[in-house]
């Protein structure tokens, strides 16, 4: 591994993000703000959803405006099983992941026949459909949601998600795994196909790629990864509700990806940390924190193209800059 990269501004920033996540359970009590450990657990769960969105949006150019629906599907897999007294993770988790993948397959198969604004609208429509479905099912709490009495049970001695630190580091390890999988995948042949299809889909067809199947596969992988975020969220909050798949959360995910740096591996984590910390801090200062937060978001979109990662990359001597 090339350690030189750690000395660049981006390298330092990205290392800092990971270190913050690792040490937050000790940093938070040390600064007398215990609840920051919880905040960071939540941040990393949202980051997993953002990482999965970045895979299709940042690398594949598919702007899904309904991505949060997969968080909901993963979450309800835990909630519904738990409400029937089935707590085994070996049932909840595979079903949650498979259902996320299945819904992604159906939504993707239809949405990917369109592009641009139509793709955005169709993914939004599907997500809202499933949102209203979850609101309408009274058996599972409709819009009050479902309280989960027991977290997923892995049946492993000394490994219990009810332990706060175990839960925290389960989230951390899975988030890092998602980052590594994304990095591996975007550099593989498959990853090159979806990146090239983002760059120039028509040319891909004329040099021999039926891109639809590749994009659909990426959409399904992203859906399942996002479902994982939902599985974790349900366990972490001991609660699921239709709100977790409401369109505003999909919008926040898009913003987190853009803020952190679309199409970069670590962008979504940075975006999630900045976005959620800022809303946490600002909402503690004033009730009308949206008045500050809104303009901030607009400024970032206007002036920091490429997000934080893109901004820091400007300080690097890129080999690509020579022409």
């Amino acid at each position: 591994m090339n350690l030189e990269i750690l000395k660049t501004p981006r390298g330092i920033y990205n290392s800092l993000l990971i270190l913050l996540c690792i040490f937050m359970p000790w940093i938070a009590p040390a600064i007398g703000q215990d609840f920051f450990t919880d905040v960071f657990g939540r941040i990393m769960i949202v980051a997993i959803a953002a990482i999965s969105l970045n895979l299709i949006m940042g690398f594949g150019g598919m702007i899904s405006f309904g991505h949060a629906v997969f968080v909901g599907i993963g979450g309800y897999a835990v909630g519904i099983f738990a409400s029937h007294g089935i707590e085994s993770a070996y049932i909840q988790w595979p079903v949650g992941l498979l259902m996320s993948g299945l819904f992604a397959l159906i939504i993707g198969a239809i949405s990917l026949r369109t592009r641009g604004v139509y793709f955005i609208m169709i993914t939004l429509a599907f997500a809202q459909m499933i949102y209203f479905l979850s609101v309408s099912i009274e058996k599972y709490g409709s819009d009050d949601g479902l309280t989960i009495d027991a977290r997923s049970d892995f049946g492993i001695p000394f490994y219990d998600l009810n332990d706060a630190l175990t839960m925290y580091f389960t989230v951390f390890v899975l988030m890092v795994a998602c980052l590594l999988i994304t990095r591996k995948m975007v550099n593989s042949r498959f990853g090159r196909v979806i990146r090239a299809a983002k760059s120039n889909d028509e040319r891909m067809h004329t040099i021999g790629y039926p891109t639809y199947g590749y994009k659909l596969t990426a959409f399904v992988i992203a859906g399942m990864m996002c479902g994982l975020s939902g599985l974790l969220s349900a366990n972490f909050e001991d609660f699921v509700s239709p709100d977790m798949m409401f369109w505003t959360f999909s919008g926040e995910l898009i913003f987190i990806v853009v803020l952190g740096g679309m199409g970069t591996i670590m962008g979504p984590l940075g975006g999630a940390i900045i976005f959620l910390l800022l809303s946490e801090v600002l909402s503690n200062i004033t009730n009308s924190w949206h008045l500050i937060f809104g303009p901030f978001l607009i400024l970032v979109v206007l002036f920091a193209r490429g997000g934080v990662e893109g901004f820091l990359a400007k300080f690097e001597k890129s080999p690509e800059a020579k022409s």
Partner: peptide, 26 residues
């Protein structure tokens, strides 16, 4: 946004069968 080499490599990759290879660094 691809290098010149990678532009051409995409065409080569297309004729080498399917690209459902997710792991090895291309």
């Amino acid at each position: 946004d691809f290098s010149v080499l990678d532009n051409v490599a995409m065409s080569i990759q297309a004729r080498e069968g399917h690209s459902f290879r997710f792991w090895k660094n291309a």
